[in-house]
Amino acid sequence: MTTKGKMIEILLVEDNPGDVRLTREALMEGKIRNALTVARDGQEALDYLLKKEDHPRPDVILLDLNLPRKNGLEVLSIIKNDENLKKIPVVILTTSEDERDILQSYELHANCYITKPVELHNFLEVMRCLQNFWLEIVKLPGTE
């Protein structure tokens, strides 16, 4: 069992500073210690993931779909096709309720698809669920 004190590395790929802050606030309200790294577009996220010398590999990636430069689905596709990266759980966190986006995300092996709710308390709820979910994830083999 992992202790609560373990620092979780989270990569948030999100171009909207409002959402970044909201996510940060929501995580702060949670009980789990985390280190949040933010990439402001798809390319930045890939750069971060592929040049990992001076930083740890993220435990989970929160990925928005609507991104500048390289969009979320492209990023997802590259991650899930990379031998080293594909094991990192990717949670699609987006406003899009388009069925095609959802379907395509799962086809590209997204681990979870969450529509951003409008209500704040809903958002906080989602983040709490995500944390619980992540706790389940870390039970999987291959993680210390």
Binding site: G18, L22, E25, T95, V118, E119, L120, H121
Partner: peptide, 17 residues
């Protein structure tokens, strides 16, 4: 209406915060 949701979400969320 879809794109209107995005800024609205910001307004609504931060107001609630």
């Amino acid at each position: 209406s879809h794109d209107l949701q995005e800024p609205l979400r910001m307004v609504s969320s931060y107001l609630q915060l």
